[in-house]
Design a protein around this nucleic acid. Structure first.
Lengths: 208, 208
DNA sequence: TTGATAAACGGAACGATGTTCCATATCTGC
DNA sequence: GCAGATATGGAACATCGTTCCGTTTATCAA
């Protein structure tokens, strides 16, 4: 029987690069793959993308052989983790939309997005490593985040909760730049600046 | 007796973070330090800043113990190498100035600077690694390159060989961005674009 | 349910690399 | 030239990436 680890992505859209001819993947293999991505996510956040392979395998409760079977190169793991996180962040948007008003949903999602950015130790390092394996990541980010935010912005604007002249990509970039100031207390600083931006969105909501 | 390896920096300005109380450094130690920086420079350019320590020590003709005595952390070596290269690039400017006309000196130096940028495999990776040891590098680059280029530009403009409305920092950034397109044949592309820019500088030299 | 079969697993083992340590070699000042 | 200080080299140990194969486990048909 499936257990709790199945929550993020019922459809396995990110690992089917070798799909189309495989009939079925064993259930334990699926579970392990998920456990590995979850473990890698936490360890990448804590220690960066150069964390020891053994540590990740141990946290996932599998052997290193299993890790290598699923993710032959480290970049495979990194890409898998970050795509999975992007998907989770996008999924959160639809949840926020059902539970909150358009404006509140937008606010919640921006904070969620911000958290995604801040916790990504080593993401920038990976992106600038020169390894072509990461070339597709930025496009994946934008292709998923931009429509999500676009939609949230439109809904909130239509509801009169924010102004309507904000471009989604601009806002994504701006928050990304905001959060790029690292450091221990950088998270708080980023959070304050984000609140400021959100207030800025609200300002002029009615004044068309 | 000193040998050929002493040419770049007679004054040891980049390794005196622990100075002020040391009386004298043994001559062989100085020679080894220079050999290590020279070896590391070439190996970093060829294989990136993650190249094996043993390889660098071997190329320098010393044991790893000697390397670790002088550069306890890898970042020490990286910073040492790049500061040394900045110094060499700045030194080249004064040489060009004595051997060429102001305009030619400027052209030569821009190509020299461009070569500095292009050959820096792994520099970007180091800068974005998040290691605070590299925080001072960008400032060091600008503090040395901007006045150098500024001066070259002024001389060339005063001699009527180029226009006079070019900002040194803008030009440095522009060339840096030009050269950031990596790849094997990227060097040629960068060179062509650089020639274009230089022609752009010349254009309008007399007009106004 | 059970057994055959393929799939997946785990972790020992190996090689490459980072890092330390100290007996030995070399330099410097006298 | 000598003594003491300084620096060296590379063996030795620790850590990590990666491979390999005997063992375990899931799947499915009977």
């Amino acid at each position: 029987m499936r257990q709790k680890s199945v929550l993020p992505l019922e459809n396995n859209k990110m690992t089917d690069d070798t799909a189309v001819e495989k009939k079925s993947i064993r259930a334990d293999a699926l579970r392990n793959e998920d456990a590995l991505l979850e473990a890698a996510k936490e360890i990448f956040a804590a220690s960066g993308v150069d964390a020891p392979v053994r540590e990740i395998a141990a946290k996932a409760g599998v052997g290193v052989g299993t890790l290598y079977r699923r993710f032959p190169k480290r970049s495979d793991l990194v890409v898998g983790v970050y795509k999975r996180e992007v998907d989770a962040c996008v999924t959160a948007a639809t949840e926020f939309r059902t539970r909150f008003s358009p404006g509140e949903a937008l606010t919640h999602w921006l904070k969620r997005y911000c958290q995604f950015i801040v916790t990504k130790k080593g993401l920038a390092a990976a992106l600038y490593s020169g390894d072509p394996a990461f070339d597709a990541l930025p496009a994946y980010f934008r292709a998923n985040f931009e429509p999500t935010l676009q939609s949230l912005l439109q809904s909130a604007a239509k509801a009169g909760e924010i102004r309507g002249d904000i471009d989604a990509y601009d806002l994504l970039r701006a928050i990304g730049n905001l959060a790029s100031v690292g450091g221990t207390e950088g998270a708080e600083h980023t959070h304050r600046m984000l609140e400021l931006m959100i207030d800025g969105l609200r300002f002029g909501a009615t004044t068309r």
